[in-house]
Computed example of a mutant assay.
Amino acid sequence: MSSIKSLPLDQFLATLAAKQPTPGGGAAAAVGAAIGNAAASMAAAYTTRKKDAESGAKEKAMVLQSAMDVTEFLQAADDDAEAYADLQRTWKESVPEDEKAKIEARALAIPTNLVETCHKNILSIHGFLPHCNTNITSDAKVGIHTLAGAARAAYQTVLVNSPTEEEKMRLQALLKEIRDVEDELL
């Protein structure tokens, strides 16, 4: 399969919809997170007017814009597909226990990192909202809601990778904070 980050959107969706193991839910969550980051970045880009510079909002917008990297999420989509393919290999082939443990740890780490990064970015966007160009705050909020959905979707991928109870509780606390932000916006 081609790199997910290099596929046109229609091809990615067709590939995701196909009866094949990858890309799957983890990659879908990562692409959703990239879309959320892009929407927030656009809202920040529109908060760079002369009056935004005078109020200090432009500086905050530039900080947010630089933090809303979509490439890390697109790379996570590729990484998730690769990790799942490696995980499948452990089910079909005899793999040394230490290698199997590394593969399982990576399959868990990718969606865990996705939940954490979505959480961090949501808090950054939320903090930016009071400074956002008022004509485009809805797009920043779309970024938050899209990232929130991606975080919840990534959490589902975490669950299939057998996290510890402590890790589940930690991630659930992040999801609760995300939900609180969304509830405030709604």
Rank of each mutant, 00 (worst) to 15 (best):
K5T: 14
K5R: 15
P8N: 09
P8C: 05
D10F: 10
F12H: 10
F12E: 09
T15Y: 07
L16N: 02
A17P: 14
Q20T: 10
G26C: 11
A27G: 15
A28Y: 00
A30N: 04
G32D: 00
A33K: 01
I35A: 00
A38N: 05
M42Y: 04
A44T: 04
A44S: 05
R49L: 15
D52P: 09
G56M: 04
A57V: 07
A57N: 12
E59G: 12
L64T: 07
A67C: 11
M68E: 02
V70G: 07
E72D: 09
A77I: 08
D79R: 10
A81T: 08
A85S: 13
A85T: 06
D86P: 12
L87Q: 06
T90E: 08
E93L: 09
S94D: 12
S94A: 05
V95L: 02
V95I: 10
P96D: 15
E97T: 07
E99M: 13
K100M: 03
R106T: 11
A107V: 03
T112P: 10
L114N: 10
L114Q: 09
L114G: 03
C118V: 01
H119K: 09
S124C: 06
P130A: 00
H131L: 13
N133C: 06
I136R: 02
D139L: 14
A140D: 13
I144F: 10
I144K: 02
I144L: 06
I144D: 02
H145V: 05
A148W: 01
A150Y: 01
A150R: 00
A154F: 06
A154T: 11
A154L: 09
Y155K: 06
Y155P: 13
Y155N: 03
T157P: 01
T157E: 09
V158D: 04
L159N: 12
E166L: 09
E167F: 02
E167V: 03
K168L: 03
A173G: 14
L174Y: 05
E177G: 04
E177Q: 13
I178K: 01
D180M: 11
D180W: 14
V181Q: 08
E182W: 09
E182G: 07
L185I: 14
